[in-house]
Amino acid sequence: MKVGEIMTRDVTSVEKDIPVKELIFILDSAKMSNMPVVDEEGKLIAFISEKDIIKAALPGYFEMLHSTSFIPDMNQFAKKLGQIADDPVERHMHSDVICVEVDDDDLQAADLIIRKNLKSLPVIDAERRLVGVVKRIDLLHHLL
């Protein structure tokens, strides 16, 4: 089966110059955990997830800690999040975006989602325009 037959037909996306706080609002209201970033032609240029925002807002030494119990409270996280709230999405997005084409096989999408541990995968057409997303749940629903 082709990716186009199993994908979620949604092209909700953001532009690279919108602020992080607006991205958080869109992710929350649309109940999404990540978002494709497109240019003014609607072509996919990057991807950004809530994980990327959390990572950007964590204190620099966080990765050196073995446990979050070493962090006294959420204040430092909240302060850093406030500092990046007006950053353009561009500063925190991934330009090396993993995606599939609408005519690719479902197996290819499944392989990428499982191997790369992705929640969802943007789907593009031959001109690299965003046409949908394949979510893990799309695959499960499709296979059942």
Binding site: T8, R9, D10, V11, T12, F25, I26, S29, A30, V131, G132
Partner: peptide, 11 residues
């Protein structure tokens, strides 16, 4: 989406 319509709504 269930009908096969692509969505692009502002929340």
């Amino acid at each position: 989406r269930d009908e096969g319509v692509t969505t692009n709504f502002v929340w």
